[in-house]
Computed example of a mutant assay.
Amino acid sequence: MDHLILDPENVLPPTRDHPPSHPHRQSLPKANVTKLHPTVSGNENASIFFVGTATTVLEWQGIRIMTDPNFLHAGDHVHLGPGVTGKRVTNPAVDLHDLPRIDAVLLSHYHADHFDRQVEQSLRRDLPIITTPHAKEHLTFQKSREESFSQVYALDFFESMMLDIAPGVQVGDVAEHSKPAIKVTGMPGKHVPSGVLSSMNDLLQAVPPTNGWMVELGVDKGRNRIDSTFECGYRIYISGDTLMVDELKQIPERYKGQNIDLMLIHLGGTRIPSPSVPLLMITMDAKQGLELIRLVNPDLTIPIHYDDYDVFLSPLADFKKVIEEAGLNDKVVYLDRKDEYRFRVKG
């Protein structure tokens, strides 16, 4: 299993060409609204800040992990495949060059509404990126040495790696040899269901392979990597851009008896090639989102990726309606851009 050491004392900005007129921000902007668990709260020590689209910043133990960085503005367009474009209709909560230090990026797939051209050109080349084998190829092998990202880690479905936090940071009242750590595991995901359409997509490469993630925050109680014993204190499932496909049924089977505390679910009902010709849905709509909640059974769900592009045709209002009809209002928290959710990691 790969290990990556993250250092909360690192002071480097996430971008390589930080504008000198903009001093490097030391923290995320103050959230418009801070939300907590609707029934169980207290002693929160971690947070998720919603930037927009599928871009969030997870912060715990001085470490910040950013998901699917997309910082385009309203009116900007992205290329989503042969003959397919999308227009952004919202603005991010913070601009790319105004971000504080970011320690690692979780990139679910190589699609411009998750990793736009501005991001690709601007990020530091040594910023760690955890992604799919397909995206790693584009970020490394298909670029010159100067433009390649130097720390790209590829995880296929159910492959894992450890993000070790540098010595000197402790989690609460724990044993001397315990140290905070984050385990990241690739989860199944598919833009296109199996069958003829999937075979055609494999040939045309119209939409790329995609991952979900299981992010486990906890402590490593071993003295070294050889005898490491990881204990999870909070488990987050990030669906990624996927439809409700059979492969997702493996998730509750593999994590049977292990609580999934939070799910970040990508919605929107994205349809291509365009809003006027919505032939193929490639992300979950409200109905499929409800199915996934029932399948995975997380303690709490936060919807993201729901209204930022004109190709997202299943609005958040549709999801709210099916959640209310299902009697699950106390199992969902809704964030707008620049809102945060705070939670407690046990340890």
Rank of each mutant, 00 (worst) to 15 (best):
T185W: 02
G218R: 01
G186L: 09
V219M: 06
I165T: 05
G195F: 02
G172I: 02
R225P: 09
L197W: 08
I182G: 00
D173G: 13
Y153M: 10
I226Q: 13
Q170F: 14
S194G: 05
N201Q: 03
M214E: 04
G189P: 01
S199T: 13
L155R: 06
V171A: 13
P209N: 05
E176G: 15
L204H: 09
C232T: 04
K183V: 00
N224M: 08
Y153I: 11
P208L: 09
P209V: 03
M162I: 13
S178D: 14
W213M: 07
I165C: 04
V219E: 06
M162S: 13
T210K: 06
V196A: 09
D227Y: 04
A154P: 03
P193S: 07
S160L: 04
H177V: 05
V171L: 14
H191I: 00
L217S: 11
F230E: 04
I165Q: 02
N201R: 04
A206R: 12
G195V: 00
G212L: 08
T210C: 09
S228G: 07
L204T: 12
M200G: 00
N211L: 15
Q151D: 09
M214P: 02
G222W: 05
M161T: 13
V192H: 05
G189C: 06
S160E: 08
D164N: 12
N211A: 15
A166C: 04
S160Y: 02
C232H: 00
P180H: 08
P180E: 09
A175D: 07
F158N: 01
L155T: 08
L217G: 11
D220Y: 00
K183C: 01
P180Y: 06
E176P: 13
W213K: 07
F157M: 08
N224C: 10
T229R: 14
F157H: 11
G172W: 03
M200N: 01
E159F: 11
P193K: 04
T229I: 14
P208A: 12
L217R: 11
N211C: 15
G222Q: 07
I226N: 12
E216Q: 05
G168W: 04
L204M: 12
P208H: 10
R223S: 13
G168N: 06
R225N: 15
P209Y: 04
S198H: 12
L217C: 10
L197H: 07
L217T: 11
K183I: 01
E176N: 14
A175N: 03
K179H: 12
V169A: 08
I226L: 13
G172K: 03
P167H: 11
S160T: 08
N224T: 03
Q151N: 11
P208W: 07
D173N: 14
K179P: 01
G172F: 02
P193I: 04
F230I: 06
P167C: 06
G168H: 06
S228R: 10
V152W: 03
I226S: 12
G189Q: 02
V219K: 02
F158Y: 05
G233A: 12
S178Q: 12
P193H: 05
